[in-house]
């Protein structure tokens, strides 16, 4: 298929940036979206032009690096996939595709489609851990039984890949889905109870400090999340925060 691509080009963080049109031809429907981008970049390099910078690494939907906003949707039109798992069979010959970076005040553009997600790192550093040293003599792994339901639910929350699609999708640029997934993973496990109050307080405080907006329960984040992280986690985080306020 032949396609017209409208792609955000921005030389650096301080550059103003603009949309630029490109044409690609003979794109196979079996290609992944990023393989289509590879074809375009190869064309650009051969013409002596600078290729389009975009984040990507594992190309199997788990590292969370890829981050394109395609035709107005984070990770494009398919559901339950990251950009790297999106395939060209979702498009048709003659389509015009708009490709932008994940946009949010807390995600400044570094170059073209690459954004800075260090805000997520700082939120995790504020409390996204259990304070246990590596000693080789922690208790036996089976010493504390954990109900299968709690373990499974914790796993569901923990499967967040930290891509930032929730933030890019949210009209308020809220990071609640991301933060609540981590809070939930630990809140559901006995190991996470000791620091639960401090954790939720500190992570939420850092989230606010980074300039992410608030949650107004629109639910767009849940729909666009490539890993299907549930809104229930946000409810759980609010509960945890409330509990922490009472305990204080």
């Amino acid at each position: 298929m032949d396609l017209t691509l409208k792609i955000w080009r921005q030389k650096s963080a301080t550059d103003k940036g603009k949309m630029v049109d490109y044409k690609v031809t003979d794109i196979s429907e079996h290609m992944s979206f990023l393989e289509m981008m590879d074809v375009l970049n190869e064309q650009l390099v051969n013409k002596g032009e600078e290729p389009i910078a975009f984040d990507h690494d594992c190309r199997e939907g788990i590292c969370g690096m890829c981050s394109m906003y395609i035709n107005g949707e984070a990770h494009g039109p398919d559901r339950g996939v990251t950009t790297c798992q999106l395939h060209m069979r979702m498009f048709k010959d003659g389509d015009t595709i708009t490709i932008e970076p994940f946009r949010a005040a807390a995600f400044p553009v570094i170059k073209d489609l690459v954004v800075d997600r260090m805000a997520f790192e700082r939120i995790q550093q504020a409390g996204g851990y259990i304070s246990v040293n590596t000693s080789g003599n922690t208790q036996d792994a089976n010493a504390t039984p954990i109900s299968k339901h709690a373990a499974d639910e914790s796993m569901d929350a923990a499967s967040c890949i930290g891509c930032g699609a929730c933030v890019a999708t949210c009209k308020n640029s809220s990071a609640m889905l991301f933060v609540s997934a981590k809070v939930s993973q630990y809140a559901l496990l006995p190991q996470g109870q000791v620091e639960a109050a401090d954790r939720v307080r500190n992570m939420v405080a850092q989230m606010d400090l980074e300039g992410f907006g608030n949650c107004t329960n629109t639910g767009a984040c849940e729909i666009e999340c490539p890993k299907g992280i549930s809104l229930d986690n946000i409810a759980r985080m609010n509960r945890e925060l409330m509990k922490a306020a009472v305990l204080k």
């Binding site: 246990v132 922690t138 504390t144 499974d152 993973q185």
Partner: peptide, 11 residues
């Protein structure tokens, strides 16, 4: 160690 860190292994 991983269980102590909160790794949600299958149960």
């Amino acid at each position: 160690q991983c269980v102590a860190q909160g790794v949600p292994f299958a149960r």
